[in-house]
């Protein structure tokens, strides 16, 4: 295992996570309640409490490139469990947003799914399930994702054939403004003055 040089701690990273998530990271005393309760720990490279610890240590790279922040299903169990009232789910989600913005995504397929979904919403105003699945399969090369489900879904009329358009362009406007603004900015200087 790599030696962590404590002198390399990045206080701006801690501050950014705290401001974007609205949570005070230093309150975590490493009890592990989040890890104990997380239903997805079995699939993570880092348990949740270690993600929290690495944020406390200001390890931007290690946190933003881990798979745990992408495999978190945002089920809120950790947030309810935390004895220090940290909304851990929001911290995980914040790290995931920052990971995408920093280009450090470890679970590319998930990011592609997210983009396919949002693309569908942007185009139609509503999510169009078959369309976004097609986009996902095309972009990941996973052409056989859930094809086993297609016949039964067709039989049960669970697949719509064409998207319902809604929103009269207002949703596309939201996306346009979002893209123009770029990532959210925080005031990182004042906090660590």
């Amino acid at each position: 295992m790599k030696t962590l040089n404590l002198g390399e701690s990045d206080p701006r990273f801690i501050s950014e996570v705290e401001q974007r998530s609205g949570q005070k990271i230093s309150r975590c005393y490493q009890c592990g309640a989040c890890t104990g309760r997380c239903p997805n720990t079995f699939a993570y490279d880092l348990p949740v409490n270690r993600v929290m610890r690495l944020i406390q240590l200001g390890r931007r790279e290690e946190v933003l490139s881990c798979s745990a922040i992408w495999l978190c299903a945002a089920c809120q169990a950790c947030a309810v469990q935390c004895p220090n009232e940290i909304d851990v789910t929001r911290v995980m989600e914040t790290c995931r947003q920052m990971s995408a913005e920093a280009g450090l995504v470890s679970e590319r397929a998930i990011q592609v799914f997210v983009k396919s979904f949002l693309g569908s919403v942007k185009r139609n105003g509503r999510a169009f399930e078959p369309g976004l699945m097609a986009g996902y399969m095309f972009r990941t090369g996973r052409f056989f994702t859930d094809v086993d489900l297609a016949p039964v879904m067709l039989a049960k009329r669970k697949l719509a054939f064409k998207p319902h358009k809604a929103g009269n362009g207002e949703v596309a406007d939201i996306f346009r403004r979002y893209e123009e603004e770029g990532p959210v900015s925080c005031n990182l200087e004042s906090d660590h003055a």
């Binding site: 592990g32 989040c34 890890t35 348990p47």
Partner: peptide, 28 residues
């Protein structure tokens, strides 16, 4: 075991105790 328990639920006549071992970095 260094960690907090997050959940207890029944399984038949016994109880499943789930928590973390933060030193091992694992759910237990």
């Amino acid at each position: 075991i260094r960690g907090r328990v997050s959940q207890i639920f029944r399984k038949g006549e016994r109880y499943v105790v789930r928590g973390a071992d933060t030193l091992a970095g694992a759910q237990v």
